[in-house]
């Protein structure tokens, strides 16, 4: 349902993406792995319309041209949400306010209530801290809230930028289990990770991004076995 063709993005004179093609089907978990500076975050930013895509790029979502949408309408009208690198919570708002802000454009009050309860049942720690300022949460709780926010704001498809960053292994497992649960309820996931092993185990399909070019693609399990991937991303 998300289809990206010939995506090119440049920051001034620097070309970060040199025309990449990929897709995410309904209900799928897809990952893009790559080293620092490969262009992973840029890919997500282009899809969520936070950076402009160069002429000739084609981005469609369920047949709709994403380039016709502004960043806020991508979320509010298409249900495509982006959890950015570093979480970027509103530290001056409470946990509950952060979640409610993510429903800014939603009108379905009853469903919002149910979704809120669902977030608090997936992440019980957030429920206990709903009146706490987001800025005072621990790193793991912040990541939960960042995902919870995305869950509230549409969740047809979630773009996740390095959700494992800075999390202890146990917490990380918790977060990925929650993501699996959310995915099983119908949300497609496009995951960007430096932790390639984790990402390839988690995803059904994966792409390998190098210097703005997609160099490999395949099933997650196959990529894990690929010697090239093992050498470059899995520590040999």
């Amino acid at each position: 349902m998300l289809k990206v063709e010939n995506l090119r993005v440049s920051y001034g004179k620097i070309m970060a993406l040199h025309g990449i093609d990929f897709y995410v089907d309904k209900g799928e978990i897809v990952t893009i792995i790559g080293a620092n500076g490969a262009g992973k975050s840029t890919t997500l930013r282009a899809v969520s319309r936070m950076v402009p895509a160069a002429d000739g790029s084609r981005l469609t979502y369920n047949g709709k041209n994403l380039l016709d949408y502004s960043a806020d309408r991508v979320v509010s009208e298409l249900g495509l949400t982006h959890v950015p690198e570093g979480r970027r919570l509103f530290g001056n708002l409470t946990v509950l306010e952060n979640l409610k802000l993510a429903c800014f454009a939603r009108k379905d009050r009853e469903q919002i209530k149910r979704d809120l309860e669902r977030v608090f049942s997936i992440f019980a720690r957030l429920g206990e801290r709903r009146e706490q300022k987001a800025g005072t949460l621990s790193g793991g709780e912040q990541q939960m809230l960042a995902i919870g926010r995305a869950f509230m704001s549409g969740r047809k498809i979630m773009l996740l930028d390095e959700p494992s960053m800075g999390l202890a292994p146990l917490l990380m497992m918790g977060v990925f289990n929650a993501l699996r649960e959310i995915n099983q309820e119908g949300t497609a996931i496009l995951l960007v990770e430096q932790n390639a092993r984790l990402a390839l185990k988690f995803a059904q399909r994966g792409y390998v991004l190098e210097n703005g070019h997609l160099v490999l693609e395949g099933r997650g399990a196959d990529l894990l076995q690929n010697p090239q991937v093992q050498n470059a991303y899995l520590g040999g």
């Binding site: 969520s48 936070m50 502004s70 960043a71 806020d72 309408r73 979320v75 509010s76 949400t81 982006h82 950015p84 970027r88 509103f90 530290g91 001056n92 708002l93 802000l101 993510a102 429903c103 800014f104 454009a105 939603r106 926010r149 704001s153 549409g154």
Partner: peptide
């Protein structure tokens, strides 16, 4: 209030 804290990510919440 959110915009005062971090203006860049506000659109990602679906807020114009």
């Amino acid at each position: 209030r959110a915009m005062a804290f971090d203006y860049v990510v506000v659109p990602l919440m679906g807020v114009p």
